[in-house]
Nucleic acid binder design. Structure first.
Length: 729
DNA sequence: TTTATTTGATTTTTT
DNA sequence: ATCAAATAAA
């Protein structure tokens, strides 16, 4: 397309509401975009139109997405419409990337230094744990994960430690408040930020400094946001700070596809947009260009069971197509065999494997399926799961560079000091970090002079100095402007990482070496493709990178992923496995009575399918090493039977209890079900034993063991299932 | 400090 | 079942 084509050309092939959204002038705009209704198209064409019609310069546009992949795709598509020269100065990036960029420019204002580290989930979890221990709380009673969650929720809600303390209502929250306070202090000391901080501190920056705020308000005359239903409080605040004045804010989203509330996404942001901006123009995109009407009817019927949503009904002119295939299988193996069998049948009939995707609720469910796929020699790829950048060797390698870039980073130091083994153990590390904290010096400075650290033995001092002299050399090389890839390669050799792996002589170590080579290769690409490669820039680019970004969709293989990762994608043929109550919807959601988000997840899954949709459920499956019998998912019963080819009658959840209820003896396999924990004996029960006589249950242990005290015999541990024990009523 | 053994936990996870 | 992390032993 020529860059001189008239702006009108951008409207070709758009339907009426799409056109309206593209043409909308100044002021707030909410685009309610149902699944597959061409929202990316609207966004890209709107941006292009803003530029073409002369209403905005590229540098005045801020376009926000949630994933790097989406950002890249959007940039490419805009580029195709207006050319790459115009696109270069545009900010098309994720919330986090945009915040990081703003923060780098003004770090000193918040007491940070430019080269601050960005901590990922793992790093910040480590720091939380250190704080818990430092405050002498028991990390078993107060797990780092649970506390981190609270802190993260608070941050996403823009509550600082002080505000959190105000709202404390339980002993647990009291503990969290203290950990939160220390965590904040420590993370600033280390010149680091976690993912949430990027947003929170960016908001702080804009709120505290009028000049900075005014600057960005002037710069970004038009702000566009994709996946608006997934924004949290902090992101919402940020948008208001930048766009609140000129109000040229265009948000695109679908409340029915909000599936990240567990991460702080606040569905109210989209539901109440019209209250926040009473003059907002609202455009609904309901025509779907992706799926058959049958699939859409099924999805519409399921989502209709949710309350509190913007009513919306997808339609398509792609015809009715096939019914939704629903199948019941005996167990997870039968299910996997069925799926693979159907895949092969469809491929025989002319489908390509890369047109097929299998979705599941939890990552663990991919295993059985993978086994069967391997056995039948069907090529596949798994999205998510073990992520490249989360592998130990990769994280270690990155941590070496991080420590060089940020000498205050105690977490990075902790990670690398003992890996590979070089005589610097846990205790030594703790002493160094502890001393750095008391003295208020950088960890690097302390570690460089270990003889001054109290409590270190001679051997430890020697090991640390040896290690740090290597690090000093590497730092000089980094400051000398070495290329990142070279620096990385040298580091891995100098510190003995490569040698240690080679010495292992295992297949696993081999794989790790390969991964490291891949990392060096990607660093080389960074060097080549970046205008001004810097260590800070490189570290930022990888810390903000998710693995799903690298999903390659061209290889001729079947794709496996969780329903969550499936959002935003589409496949001609889709299987959703494990459609059982307890699995999907998950038992947690059922217990909490919070089914709406699970239902939205179901809606997302169903609407990924273009032509063919299979939903399978198993009568029994093995989970956490225990066999479970589950009822078919209540969501299956929400699909009108005439849209499906189900052989059984699926009864809505409430009525189902009477039909399936507890599994009938006939339905259970020949082997008796293990007695359920807590069903037969409870603490305090009076019991009688065949040889010991009467006693009382005083305790229970996992694995079906009861502890019974018999007068004269003392306490005995007995196997609940086999002991000749009866309850006395 | 390193290793072997036991324990425990286990949804989803754009950054 | 499985994997990481805590604990105990060498």
């Amino acid at each position: 397309m020529s860059t001189t084509a008239p702006a009108d050309a951008l409207l070709e092939g758009l339907n009426e509401p799409q056109r309206q959204a593209v043409l909308h002038g100044d002021g707030p705009l909410l685009v309610l975009a149902g699944a597959g209704s061409g929202k990316t198209r609207v966004l890209t064409h709107r941006i292009a139109h803003l530029i073409r019609s002369g209403r905005a310069h590229p540098g005045e546009i801020l376009a926000i997405t949630f994933t790097n992949k989406a950002a890249e795709e959007m940039r490419e598509r805009v580029e195709r419409l207006v050319g790459d020269r115009a696109t270069r100065r545009m900010w098309v990036m994720t919330f986090h990337a945009a915040c990081a960029r703003i923060l780098r420019a003004h770090a000193e204002r918040l007491g940070y230094k430019r080269g601050f580290t960005i901590y990922d989930e793992d790093d910040s979890l480590r720091l939380v744990k250190r704080c818990i221990e430092e405050l002498d709380f028991d990390p078993k009673r107060f797990t780092p994960r649970a506390i981190k969650r609270q802190i993260s929720d608070a941050k996403n809600d823009l509550r600082d430690p002080e505000a959190y303390r105000q709202g404390v209502g339980s002993f647990f929250e009291q503990t969290v408040a203290e950990v939160y306070e220390l965590y904040e202090r420590r993370i600033v000391e280390m010149n680091a930020m976690d993912f949430d901080d990027l947003l929170v501190r960016c908001v702080n920056l804009l709120e505290l400094f009028e000049d900075v705020r005014a600057g960005y308000r002037r710069t970004f005359k038009h702000v566009l946001v994709d996946e608006y239903q997934d924004t949290n409080r902090a992101q919402y605040r940020l948008l208001r700070l930048i766009a609140g004045e000129h109000r040229n804010l265009c948000v695109v989203g679908d409340d029915d596809q909000s599936i990240y509330s567990f991460r702080g996404a606040d569905i109210r942001n989209i539901l109440e947009f019209e209250e926040d901006f009473p003059d907002a123009t609202v455009v609904k995109l309901e025509q779907n260009y992706r799926s058959t009407q049958t699939i859409l009817d099924a999805a519409n019927a399921v989502i209709a069971n949710n309350r509190g949503r913007k009513s919306k009904s997808l339609w398509s002119d792609l015809g009715r197509g096939e019914p939704v295939h629903i199948r019941e299988l005996e167990d997870e193996f039968a299910e996997a065999r069925f799926v693979v069998g159907e895949i092969e049948r469809l491929v025989d009939e002319g489908a390509s494997r890369d047109e097929i995707a299998v979705f599941y609720r939890t990552n663990a469910q991919s295993r059985v399926l993978e086994e069967v796929l391997v056995r039948y020699d069907v090529g596949y790829q798994v999205v998510g799961g073990r992520k490249f950048y989360e592998r130990k060797e990769i994280r270690d390698a990155i941590a070496y560079l991080t420590f060089i870039a940020n000498p205050s980073d105690a977490i990075a130091f902790q990670r690398i000091a003992g890996s590979p083994k070089r005589g610097i153990g846990e205790t030594t590390q703790q002493r160094i970090i502890g001393h750095a904290e008391t003295v208020g010096e950088q960890v690097w400075e302390i570690a460089a002079r270990p003889e001054l650290v109290p409590g270190l033995g001679g051997a430890a001092v020697k090991a640390v100095s040896r290690f740090m002299s290597i690090m000093e050399r590497l730092r000089e090389r980094a400051e000398g402007g070495a290329r990142i890839a070279d620096l990385l390669e040298e580091t891995l050799h100098e510190v003995g990482y490569i040698e240690a792996l080679q010495a292992e002589r295992t297949i696993e170590a081999e794989g790790r070496l390969e991964n490291l080579e891949q990392l060096v290769e990607s660093a080389r690409q960074y060097d080549a493709s970046t205008d001004e490669p810097t260590l800070d820039g490189y570290l930022e680019s990888i810390s903000l990178r998710a693995d799903t970004d690298d999903l390659r969709d061209d290889a001729g293989v079947v794709t496996l992923m969780t329903l969550h990762s499936a959002k935003g994608l589409e496949y001609p043929i889709v299987f959703i496995i494990g459609c059982e109550d307890g699995v999907f919807p998950s038992s947690r959601a059922i217990e909490a009575g919070d089914l709406e988000e699970e239902r939205r997840l179901c809606y997302v899954g169903l609407t990924r399918a273009q032509r063919v949709l299979y939903l399978t459920h198993a009568r029994t499956r093995l989970r956490h090493g225990e066999r479970e019998w589950n009822q078919p998912s209540r969501f299956l019963a929400e699909i009108p039977p005439e849209l499906t080819d189900a052989e059984e009658e699926l009864v809505p959840a409430r009525a189902a209890a009477s039909r399936w209820g507890a599994p009938s003896p006939a339905a259970a396999p020949a082997r008796p079900r293990p007695r359920e924990e807590g069903v037969s004996f409870q603490i305090g029960d009076d019991v009688v034993h065949a040889t010991f006589g009467e006693g009382v249950v005083t305790g229970k242990e996992p694995g079906g063991i009861v502890i019974v005290r018999f007068p004269g015999e003392g306490e005995k541990k007995l196997m609940e299932d086999y002991a000749p024990l009866k309850k006395v009523s």
